[in-house]
Amino acid sequence: MTHEPVAAEAATPLLSRRDALLAGGATITLATAPAAALGQPMPAPTGADAQAAAAPVLMEVSMEVNGTARHLRLDTRTTLLDALREHLQLTGSKKGCDHGQCGACTVIADGHRINSCLSLALMHEGSRITTIEGLGTPDRLHPMQAAFIRHDGYQCGYCTPGQICSAVAVLDEIRAGVPSHVSADLEAAPAPTNMEMRERMSGNICRCGAYSNIAEAMAELAEHGA
């Protein structure tokens, strides 16, 4: 059996609606009906292999990524991380474990850092996503990116985009008064101490072991402002 054309389509980012979105100046309301409504066969309800061997279900989703409206038609199984990396070819967000155990995939969604590997792209209809590419570029570095370079807060570089997205969000979380495991007084406003930052950054593993330098890069920004 040859592969189905719809499958090939899923591998390609479909940005065709983007222009329409921009031109129309309005958000397109997308179908949220089950796949049957989109003309795809429903997976067989019983029989484990029958379901696994069933055709993928394709659905559409729109989100804003780094300030640009994006429209995708995706296999429902596609994570936000794979949508970014494979479909939008924004490969700055990394896949280190694909199970929420390392933090390399950290992006900022609607102002909150999340593990993009543990989120379906479809769950981000209408979301505003900021990835490492949206924070800064080699020619226009975000202050946190520049601080990481100055303090050598990275080595192999693979966890680095996640570390930086997290670091930016952590300073915001401290400013917003979110408590942490090491906050001595739950009711007091947390301060950007070394221990506070280390605890809050602990969801971003760096096997090269740049932690001490990352803490210093963050301290510099916490002190002088990002």
Binding site: Q89, K94, T131, L141, I149
Partner: peptide, 21 residues
């Protein structure tokens, strides 16, 4: 000396194996 590959690594533009579209 700051790493010369720093601007790429910190902006997610250094290409690793799986992502070389």
């Amino acid at each position: 000396t700051d790493r010369i590959d720093g601007p790429r690594k910190t902006t997610g533009t250094a290409p690793y194996a799986y992502e070389r579209h």
